[in-house]
Design a protein around this nucleic acid. Sequence first.
DNA 1: GCGGCCGCTTGACCGTGGTCAAGGGCGGAT
DNA 2: ATCCGCCCTTGACCACGGTCAAGCGGCCGC
Lengths: 232, 232
Amino acid sequence: MARTMTDSIRETLRALPHFQALDTELFERVVACAELRSFERSETIFLHGDRARAFFVVRCGSVRVYRATPDGREQVVHHLRAGQSFAEPAVLSIGRYPVNAVALESPTELVAVDARFLELLKGEPRLSIAIVSSLSMRLLGLVERIEELSIASAPARLAHYLMKLPAQGTHEHLVVQLPLAKKDLAAHLAIAPETLSRLLRRWQDRGLIRSKGRTLDLLDTRILLAIADRDE
Amino acid sequence: MARTMTDSIRETLRALPHFQALDTELFERVVACAELRSFERSETIFLHGDRARAFFVVRCGSVRVYRATPDGREQVVHHLRAGQSFAEPAVLSIGRYPVNAVALESPTELVAVDARFLELLKGEPRLSIAIVSSLSMRLLGLVERIEELSIASAPARLAHYLMKLPAQGTHEHLVVQLPLAKKDLAAHLAIAPETLSRLLRRWQDRGLIRSKGRTLDLLDTRILLAIADRDE
DNA sequence: GCGGCCGCTTGACCGTGGTCAAGGGCGGAT
DNA sequence: ATCCGCCCTTGACCACGGTCAAGCGGCCGC
């Protein structure tokens, strides 16, 4: 019954795509590289330029990975939830974090896998194949994100985001929950909070959605999809 | 004296970071997966959705990798020159190209490394370590690109681009050559060609640069740097 | 040398979306 | 229950940069 910290680590790591196919012995050696860390809302996990001693897997809570410019603006690169990993590239190549990461909820628990993992990698082709594949997927995801951020208009980005959210209900009347505060969602979509607010208002007036706090009813998915990949 | 096609392939692949540390025997097995292909200006190399049979290394010429949206707009993801590789992730994970690629010059010669490479990877930890590292670098590059495209203003993007170009001359009077036609540069920076034109004009009027065709004199690098990471 | 094409430049216009400022509403703390 | 603070909303304004349209210039083919 006693649930050790190592059990938590084991459970979190095993759920990762990288590690699902590993045999027990190798997997335990990975677990031995890891420790559990806990963060509070708004607590910094690492900063741009810090020495990259570990990569992370989200056990619970959520994390924002972002870049900041000298003039104080920032751009969200990733938003991570339970079961997702981040910062592998920093550990596996240059050894410094190229971005900032901050916890968004209290508590946010992360499994930190440190540099001993690199040694494992060198001796284990199966492990490196898994990592290659997972990094490749991540790359493809970033290419998507480039498209989202630079081709699409603000309404298209929002509609696209809403339609990708896990939904409940029938095809013509979906109900979704926003996983972020609206101001954080705005940051993720690279728009001002005011713009987000105005868009939701407009669509509600047109009968496309209904909005109550973080719960949205998508009433006309047909038109929303059209907005998502054409343009408003 | 006779220079075989295989020699060309060997030379091109050997210059890649992935392959520099390989011993001769393993390297030759990589070479055996590769063939040389030639393209003309504007010729398509692959399209979004095509089965990914190979990844590529640029031997000469240049390549634009881009995404297109239903409404006809497009976003440049990469611009590649001699010695650079692309499309590894497609081959190494999902098996389909997620983007389009087109040759920008005549001739553009590419070394295509086909799927037999995957088999090599499975048996060779050193090879996969090299790939992991190189994919990681690529990921970091894409994060930079996200910042470039979505945080910075048009003047900042342009100034940043100019200051990163290989330059000749003294610190306070650099001379750079644009490696792209201005309309292609505009596409890379995600701005309209007209905007590029106007920016260069304005900076020339202010004495920051001098522009003659594709040759630019950077007369005040101090201010250009300021524009690059603050904002206009 | 001449014509035509394509890339570059310039001008005029306008829409998208960011900024500034102020008001309302929900929730947590006491 | 009440207060305070933070988020969200709404309004007014404006500038950045895209689009449309026209004119210019250089390069290549004939």
